[in-house]
Design a protein around this nucleic acid. Sequence first.
DNA 1: AAGGTTTGTGATCCTTTCGCCTAAATCTGT
DNA 2: ACAGATTTAGGCGAAAGGATCACAAACCTT
Lengths: 409, 409
Amino acid sequence: MRIHGTDVGQRSETVRRANLSAIVRGLHEHGPMSRSELVAATGLTRSAIRGLVGELAGAGLVTEAPAVRLGTPGRPSPMVRLNPHGATVLAIEILVDSIAAAIVGLGGETLAEIRVDRPRGHLSVDSVVADLAGLTRELQASVHDPLIGIGVAVAGVVRRSDGLVSMAPNLGWVDVPLGAHLARALGTTIPIAVANDADLGVLAEHRRGAAVGVDDVLYVSGEVGVGGGAITGGVPLTGVAGYGGEIGHMPANPDGVACRCGSTGCWETEVGEGALLTLAGLPSDAGRDGVEAVLRDAEAGSPAAVAALHHVGRWLGIGLAGLVNLLNPRLVVLGAMHGRIYPFVRATIEAEIATRALPAPRAIVRIVPASLGADAPLLGAAELAFEPLLADPASRVGARDGAIHLATA
Amino acid sequence: MRIHGTDVGQRSETVRRANLSAIVRGLHEHGPMSRSELVAATGLTRSAIRGLVGELAGAGLVTEAPAVRLGTPGRPSPMVRLNPHGATVLAIEILVDSIAAAIVGLGGETLAEIRVDRPRGHLSVDSVVADLAGLTRELQASVHDPLIGIGVAVAGVVRRSDGLVSMAPNLGWVDVPLGAHLARALGTTIPIAVANDADLGVLAEHRRGAAVGVDDVLYVSGEVGVGGGAITGGVPLTGVAGYGGEIGHMPANPDGVACRCGSTGCWETEVGEGALLTLAGLPSDAGRDGVEAVLRDAEAGSPAAVAALHHVGRWLGIGLAGLVNLLNPRLVVLGAMHGRIYPFVRATIEAEIATRALPAPRAIVRIVPASLGADAPLLGAAELAFEPLLADPASRVGARDGAIHLATA
DNA sequence: AAGGTTTGTGATCCTTTCGCCTAAATCTGT
DNA sequence: ACAGATTTAGGCGAAAGGATCACAAACCTT
């Protein structure tokens, strides 16, 4: 029998691990801090902080700037900052119309990034993986820091344990073992974590964007499909296998149209890009430019464009009302297309929520557009890849100079 | 600046706290264990377990039975069990047609319980609170163990921080400070935690019922209204204020009928008790007896009853499909009326889920009826009240003989 | 230049668990 | 029945880690 919980069998070593984690995570999320600020933030003593920071510095994960005079009395405290070159991750994003790769340093600094637009349509897994391997080689030519993990954002339903893409309707993928494919193409044994793009988008907005400091966040991102991610109590809502957050395929309109997923009346069919474009009289694959056209037409007074926006806004409000009732978030972040159209549909959304959400959660929630733009899933992928290090920096401490590189083959 | 996380500023004392918590929580959730089993379960050494268990025994929280011979070689290990009289909680349940109170001992044993049926209808807060105080006095006459907390389950939307019942449509309550009312009526300063009945139902099913060992559970409980609760990653989904889990008021049918909450087409209006009864041709307030009548009629072949069940089953399936896509649970537990009708609507539910849920999460999820019956929220209220002790037994250790009693006034 | 304030440094102490040894209790095989 | 194997309890010293405390250093204010 195994007792089940977060803190089973703690020992003194665990304490050090946890304290190192608190320091590294604090610096990663809040940026550089002085040693005395670390003392205040963690509640540890100066002696303890000194020892822990010293250990991290010895491992190359942090650097200490000599001092900084800031006009207050007392001896100035040296600034501690994470060393972006002490540990890096490779972040990869696979969207319907573009792929991207970046190398991100500890602390969140992007050291190198490449994005390549691709034509929409069903893309073979092999060609995408090959292209990503090419991008990665380019990035690796300019950055030579130790790589500790790889994070992948993909617009599909992903099993976290092994990176199986169960379904990515907009890519035409079914049961693709993406994690294994990438490992082979990159010739590496570095851990690869694959996740849904919206799940990573909310992670990025939570760490670096519009939801910093907010522990209960719902993120809705309308691309070709409609993705969603949630953070509840500060913890990403993944579900048992990582499939969680698929709000685009919640039944919304029983009389609705067929969805790519095989069901009918999914929320995505009412609030997705295709719905907006079709209702506005444009081809459903007009893409981002089409959306911009709809917005211009609406400003110019086009009835079809206004009606299309109203339709999407109304269904957005209906769906959000239910999600607000279910998840009781502090903040709803609208990403991608939904962030773009938000100024145009704000009143419609709010009217529906005022009607359909319960008074109590409704009074708490705020709706804001995303602040990170198209890079959110990419940054989230980096955060995902950093997570093991943040949770246990001790695993790297002592493993000094463990510069791992991808095979150049 | 305060670093934000679960494990900030750990020290040796924290380790002891965590280890005591692991032991008490393990015994509370899994029942009595021998000392050697505790060693295996926690990964701690015998020496450590001896010291920790000894401390708990000294505080009266656990008892050690001399030994137990179990047919295996080796020196037998004494059984460690929680002492139900070492710490107790008062659990209270406020449903639409009944109120109940119980005193539950550490480990989960119910030491005393009273349930009183009440006529349905709008109930004054004062009368309910007065009746509960009476029940509590009765219970306290027979049990005199130290009381460490009070948990309250109420069929409404509850703010966790202070026990404000924002809305309980089926009780006719709006913005009732129930926690404060109860504290006054019981004349106590013991912490009172109030929560939604379905949120506590899933907690109980997770600890003692159909969802033991399952960390991603969705619970749907159809009473007069439709309540819901979820556990994700082992953690109850409360949302930022505790309002989370209100699945009964997710918009389901935009063309639907008016709901008690003020919206229209809420899921509750399609799958609640009222919907089933009305469709079957019975008065909507026929209650549990009415539901039984519908089931009897359906077995006898009544077309109206069969159609009513089919309708509820179909909408149950539609809603569950969306929730499965969103939350990716391992298990869906159907409580109260939904558990009762499950055998009759199982095929209908499964057909809708097969159509509307995404293949990946659908392949994982199982649907089962609840196993605790009507007492689930009451047991959950007890679990809620025990939570502080389970999280930090050290706070009681040393506070020996801190038998706190309610004022008898 | 003197005093106050804050922080770094280092030695020592306290807490908690681990490791090891011996004793005890039980089962198994002869 | 008795010896050996197995498993666990009990107790003592070791190890690890942070807390405490005293002192020195660096800065600001007057």
